[in-house]
Design a protein around this nucleic acid. Structure first.
Lengths: 133, 133
DNA sequence: GACATTACGTAATAACATTACGTTCGATTG
DNA sequence: CAATCGAACGTAATGTTATTACGTAATGTC
């Protein structure tokens, strides 16, 4: 159960690029950073990102059109609802899961016969460090 | 306090286009629909959308890169946290506000000294009608 | 080994959004 | 009333993000 699906070369390259980054990266930024590794076209990045997000190793930030490596506090592949707090100044992203929020949104879905596939929660603002600065 | 700021011609045209639509529209779709009214460039749409969103008359759906007219159950201009349930099949969008969710996210922000500017909650899935079909 | 599935490479194009620059309109206010 | 100031506008060019289309290669399965 805990095995990591072996990633392909392209997938590993993209994953490592995101892990080494100190914040979210756009697909095209990833592409640029992987030119020396033979990447030539956006699709190479997007295909790897699709796979990585479906494995839960990477998250897409909708409000940024960018991607981050999963911080890993929560289990991969689970359908857990994760919220992101994104600092507009330094770009750092915090992930957190709130069971109550999750439960309330599920309750709304239940009450309205809505079947949720994917839920996005993103808070844009200013982090503690940047507020102090 | 309750007066509606008079909208300019462009702003009204964009607003009406969104109100008449039966779902979210992209900026470019709006542009196409307003060609006959003299719209020529994306910026005309984006400028109107910026104003309308700042007035709370229109919402941007980040996960769709599209815009909807505010459904109007909640007060305009307020900084209220609104969640959107988006049907992937029929495109309909439901707006709702959940005070508990709001409170929990505010609590997280408080605990983490994070200053939230704007929060996005979007649930992608399938609505009741489409599930039945 | 035949077959299905998944991943890959490349090129072209579509879709979404902004920058830059100059002009017009309306409300002050001196 | 003219000067001025700010918001909105028009247009063109460009930048950024994402997908479609087509063919090839690698991998797993029976």
């Amino acid at each position: 159960m805990t095995e990591a699906t072996a990633l392909t070369r392209n997938q590993s390259l993209v994953h490592n690029t995101l892990r080494q980054a100190d914040g979210p990266l756009s697909a095209y930024t990833i592409l640029d950073r992987l030119r020396d590794d033979g990447f030539r076209a956006p699709l190479q990045v997007y295909r790897a990102l699709d796979k990585l997000t479906s494995l839960g190793l990477v998250h897409r930030l909708e409000s940024l059109n960018a991607f981050v490596a999963c911080a890993g506090e929560h289990r991969h592949g689970e359908n857990e609802l994760i919220a992101f707090a994104i600092c507009e100044r330094c770009g750092q992203v915090e992930e957190f899961a709130d069971p109550v929020v999750c439960e309330r949104l599920e309750a709304w879905a239940g009450d309205n016969a809505f079947h949720a596939d994917k839920t996005t929660i993103e808070i844009r603002g200013k982090c503690a460090v940047c507020r102090a600065a």
